[in-house]
Write a protein that binds this DNA or RNA. Sequence first.
DNA 1: TTTACATGTTACCTAAAGGTAACTAGTTAC
DNA 2: GTAACTAGTTACCTTTAGGTAACATGTAAA
Lengths: 110, 110
Amino acid sequence: MVTIAAKREFKCPVTGMLQLIGGKWKPVILYCLRSEKRRFGEIAARIPDLSRKVLTQQLKELEEDGLVTRKQYNEIPPRVEYELTDLGKSLAPVLNEMEKWGLENIINKQ
Amino acid sequence: MVTIAAKREFKCPVTGMLQLIGGKWKPVILYCLRSEKRRFGEIAARIPDLSRKVLTQQLKELEEDGLVTRKQYNEIPPRVEYELTDLGKSLAPVLNEMEKWGLENIINKQ
DNA sequence: TTTACATGTTACCTAAAGGTAACTAGTTAC
DNA sequence: GTAACTAGTTACCTTTAGGTAACATGTAAA
């Protein structure tokens, strides 16, 4: 996934936004953080099919792209919290529509 | 990309919908078809970075998943038109929010 | 002195996505 | 008789995404 750091010109708004939240997991991670900050382990527990390695990678890219913040507490054992930035929160309408469509057309059809 | 044919149980609506419209190109293709039916060559021309091979593949998967219809006219030279199904049209709110976010946060920031 | 705790990193590997280039078909225009 | 037209297919290759397993860290509890 290309981060916004490696930004280029996009004529198409949909193509452009897919550079940021495309990929198998990013929308799910953002959806998981939509209402509250969460610890690394919490996110991992809520998305069991996602390996910790990939979760780390995706969170790092989301942070580079300014969609989440990472706050590390120097405690033992370590604690790290992830939270949406304002830009991340601005994705709420997109994620809400995705959730709504998924509920109506997938979950309720199973 | 797994098609709905290889459907499984999803607890998460966002994860579920990403099986259908995840991937680098599908939202862009659907976005391209949102307002009118289009010929294969038209779609290809509007998404220049997408190779014809991949476009064929993605359209086939979208058709299998019931999001677009393919109508072939037996003319010479051939003509094939793609159009959103009702299910495909029901994605409009998602695509509109994606477009809106992309316009506000990517296109207008370049 | 070994284990558990949480949050990673690293090395290594596989599978999936996506790319290019060459080819097909049947008719029309040059 | 050769090229152009459209919508593909096929073979082959590269890149990216994602997976597993092992290890690091420092303290506290067994």
